[in-house]
Design a protein around this nucleic acid. Structure first.
Lengths: 153, 153
DNA sequence: GATGAAACTCTGTATTC
DNA sequence: GAATACAGAGTTTCATC
């Protein structure tokens, strides 16, 4: 029987594997095997285990928003008065795929969102929608200074 | 000669390809070819072009921070008085891989950061370091409500 | 965890529309 | 620009040690 969920301690080799596959998600098993100094089959077994334990949650290509036409990136903070605005927020998130990230955080019931937009007009449309839910404050992003993978301690 | 950089209009097929490869970064060319209804060689040509134009910037595995021991996630906003604190910020980013994201934004010369930490003690160590650069405000993240790929318009 | 053989995938080149 | 086809190299998979 396969063990789909049980958490095991991650050893140094697992850490190296996670590090490698975050750096290059398209690396072949053979590449990874060389990197972590294991056979291909052992590498595959470990990678599978990490996937099945949902430690690796996905593999994805990164697309540069600017290169596909989003000249702007903004951070929007939104306060909500009541306790549960999950439904309203979910609706807006579904309506606007350009809200690429949304966090619910402490401090005056805030949501923090990251939005990509083709221009100010485009951004305004989304923020107008958000402002219906609660008071917002919008900051434009000058630069993504860092966007790093999860470190493996 | 190959065309490494020139920007071309992306058509529907390119959009479908970007969408597919963001959803599954490990999909084989054959998989992608089926999905976008093109031959393998045409699919490969388009994927190459997207990579060479730096529209696809990377492929990466996503690792769940919680699953590798980071119980906490925090958003830290930092104000800096002077104009260029890039060097100081770069140093802290290098010293703390747990600062997984850093944006430079409008509004009182702010940096916004996302940090993963094993606990409050761990988080405190990083925020103490940041507080040396400028005044900070820290919010804990209750929930990552959404983390979506770049939409292709 | 390693090995090796079979099946599959990728890459480059050539041909045709 | 795209489809088809072919071959060699590389990769994955699985049974076996």
């Amino acid at each position: 029987m396969t063990n789909g969920g049980a958490l095991k301690e991650l050893d140094e080799t697992d850490h190296a594997l996670l590090e490698a596959v975050q750096r290059d998600g398209r690396a072949t098993l053979s590449d990874l095997a060389v990197e972590i100094r294991l056979s291909v089959s052992a590498t595959r077994a470990r990678l599978r285990a990490l996937e099945e334990q949902r430690i690796i949650t996905a593999y994805a290509a990164h697309v540069d928003p600017e290169a596909v036409g989003y000249a702007l990136r903004a951070v929007v903070r939104m306060k909500v008065n009541g306790p549960l605005f999950d439904a309203e927020v979910a609706t807006v998130l579904e309506r606007h795929p350009q809200i690429v990230r949304c966090l619910r955080v402490t401090g005056e019931s805030c949501y923090m969102m990251e939005i990509v937009a083709t221009g100010l007009r485009d951004l305004e449309e989304i923020t107008d929608d958000l402002a219906q839910i609660g008071p917002i404050s919008t900051d434009l992003v000058y630069e993504v200074v860092a966007d790093k993978p999860t470190p493996v301690p």
